[in-house]
Nucleic acid binder design. Sequence first.
DNA 1: GAATTCCAAACTGTATACAATCTTGAATGC
DNA 2: GCATTCAAGATTGTATACAGTTTGGAATTC
Lengths: 231, 231
Amino acid sequence: MAKRESNVDRVYEALRRMAADFAFKPDQRINESALSEVLGASRTPLREALNRLVAEGFLTFQINRGFFCRPLTPSYILDLYEARVAIECEALRIACLRAPNADIMAFSDYLDRLEPEYESATELEELLTLDESFHSRLVQLSGNSELQRMLKNLNGRIRYIRLIDLKRMRDQAEGRAPGDVSAHRQVLQGLEARDVEAATRALRNHIEKRREEATEAVRIAFSQLYVPDED
Amino acid sequence: MAKRESNVDRVYEALRRMAADFAFKPDQRINESALSEVLGASRTPLREALNRLVAEGFLTFQINRGFFCRPLTPSYILDLYEARVAIECEALRIACLRAPNADIMAFSDYLDRLEPEYESATELEELLTLDESFHSRLVQLSGNSELQRMLKNLNGRIRYIRLIDLKRMRDQAEGRAPGDVSAHRQVLQGLEARDVEAATRALRNHIEKRREEATEAVRIAFSQLYVPDED
DNA sequence: GAATTCCAAACTGTATACAATCTTGAATGC
DNA sequence: GCATTCAAGATTGTATACAGTTTGGAATTC
């Protein structure tokens, strides 16, 4: 009977989804009154949610001018992916050193179970969710809540970069990249052998490769998308 | 003439300082009305600032019960320091690979210039600021804004753990630890040689050593501090 | 005396009003 | 034309009011 989720939480989640789904254009000013009507809440809880998103780096804020969608520059994308390498590789290192065998085996089972889904997935969202969950489960193995929190934040902000990347991959080659699964397996093998060097090397290579592709995909998408301003 | 800082920013900074200076006891409920009077602002901007702090992990929030100061458990401290290792070691790695020589030399000069201050500093706050700025300048060398943002956040939350640690060190041994300076020099030497392995090894050891001491210091401080509840 | 119920006070959640500031575009001068 | 000024409208900033919820303790029951 008791409410479990606050209105601010609901608004916050809705905004995060909107941000991940291109509802705001980069550098676009966000109109609080209009948005509060769309979301069915007054400006007070809306602004509380917007402040959370600013603190998390999704949006920016200028005094007396309000909230803005963050622009998507190549150097920003580089920063985000490098931060992912930092978080994930250290988490993997910790997992190699002290994750229980049972947890590693469960992770391996999970990968086995999902491989067919990976092969058959047709929806971009589905592929994206599978990939994200591999990485976030990996970080969970470290048992470190701060690393998990940081990865969750990065994933949220990288999400639509990934979508652009996946879209391009699908359009380009009909034979969809099985590269992810094999890269993931390679990381797992290092982890199972408790070989920090091998595991982190594989993970670092995987993420950096993805970064290069994603940067290029975003560059191309933007050069096609933002020709004039279609207002 | 134009205001450069919003009221929310001012309130936010004041709250961060309060959090770092033990103004809130762990697990303490924060009374919005009382706090808004102290800070000279109404509840609306106060709550916006509090929401930022929740997003950054300084405080927690429960629906219909409000905001709470985060408790300081050993596993939380471990998580924070491990996250620092992740951020700082990757930043150092990047700096080894691509920071300009001029920047590294400037960093070295900076360390030379501050060494005497390190030796003469008597105030805990002063020592703390010196140590924090070594680490944040190191991360600046990577040129990655996300890593800088993450470290800033971690430093803010670790600040009072460090204070407890430094206080204990001062009380314990009159000959104050010169260990920091020499550890910092060792990291710098690795960086100057562009030796990723040597540099990150030194940095990792330094942070992990600090973590062990800090965890112990907090354990002792809390066992002395929270005997009953002194209301 | 211990457990339970219930009520009043305290507190949080949010809509709203209004002041302060910015934006836009028309009018003006060059 | 082009730049400048100015005012009306739009938008943000925040105090306040009030509804909804929780809290703490007095009253009640066993």
